[in-house]
Design a protein around this nucleic acid. Structure first.
Lengths: 145, 145
DNA sequence: ATGACTGCAAAGACTTTGCATCTTT
DNA sequence: AAAGATGCAAAGTCTTTGCAGTCAT
């Protein structure tokens, strides 16, 4: 017998929160986002629904950034950029390897490849800027010392 | 003043353990591996050295698999395969995107890209096999019931 | 001797889970 | 009414950290 699925208002709103942002939220972010409209919301419920949505294929995980798992409501193929300074995650819509790559790797290595992730790391625009300001200031202090 | 670095035997052995395996070990794995030869080893020391080696650029992180961070002593460009069933991590030496890709993304999106990771997911050979055996058995049970 | 490294254990952070209660169907 | 979903809080995992003692230079 199939297990029935009930769409509570909270469940729907948790999914909508993920799908309605491009910040690749963590469980905590979703919880804080919905707390005003759902005062009785529990963090455990958010976690349980994230697991549920991922099992249903409605969202995917972007991986763990700074100790927290981050999620993505966009399912079309795309890559990600992770800022190693502030932890922000950006979509890179145009960037993705060939669709045949999974099959190529499967054959070449005798594996059953189902998907791949291409993730870039570095500094986002604002972190790169503040870091260069920082080093400007350090240089100034060094030379004036 | 530069901070002096002292190479204790434990530190050297922790690094050697990582560099001497292709299993992409976790902190716990390194700890269990070295415990026989270093009975007084502490897990905290392993963690501290992993952080140290990564800062020194001697190892890199493969990311978090099944809740545990996994490390890699191989620094040449290559991709990884993660088995979503057993959590094993494999190197894919031949597979890696163009070297220019980081620069392309930097320009296209106004970011300061420093590196990228290409990671494949699916089932390793042995997990794919046992899973197909499992479903064979399930089919048998269903049809005979 | 100095300062870096380590062991130990406590603390921290994130996530999962058991159970009673509430909701959806 | 039945079964799924939730709240709450405890527990579980992995990792970090403070402090006192040890070790390399």
């Amino acid at each position: 017998m199939e297990r029935a699925i009930r769409y509570s208002q909270k469940r729907a709103d948790i999914l909508a929160a993920i799908q309605g942002t491009d910040c690749h939220p963590s469980a905590e972010w979703v919880y804080q986002q919905l707390k005003p409209s759902h005062p009785g919301l529990s963090l455990g419920t958010v976690y349980r629904n994230l697991i549920f949505f991922r099992q249903q294929g409605l969202i995917q995980s972007v991986g763990v950034v700074g100790g927290q798992e981050r999620f993505d409501g966009t399912l079309t193929p795309h890559s990600h950029f992770v800022c190693d300074s502030c932890g922000s995650v950006l979509d890179l819509p145009g960037i993705h390897p060939d669709g045949d790559l999974d099959q190529t790797v499967s054959r070449q290595y005798g594996l059953s490849v189902q998907r791949h992730e291409l993730t870039f790391h570095g500094l986002c625009q604002s972190c790169a800027q503040s870091q260069s300001n920082q080093s400007d200031q350090n240089n100034k202090e060094e030379t004036s010392a």
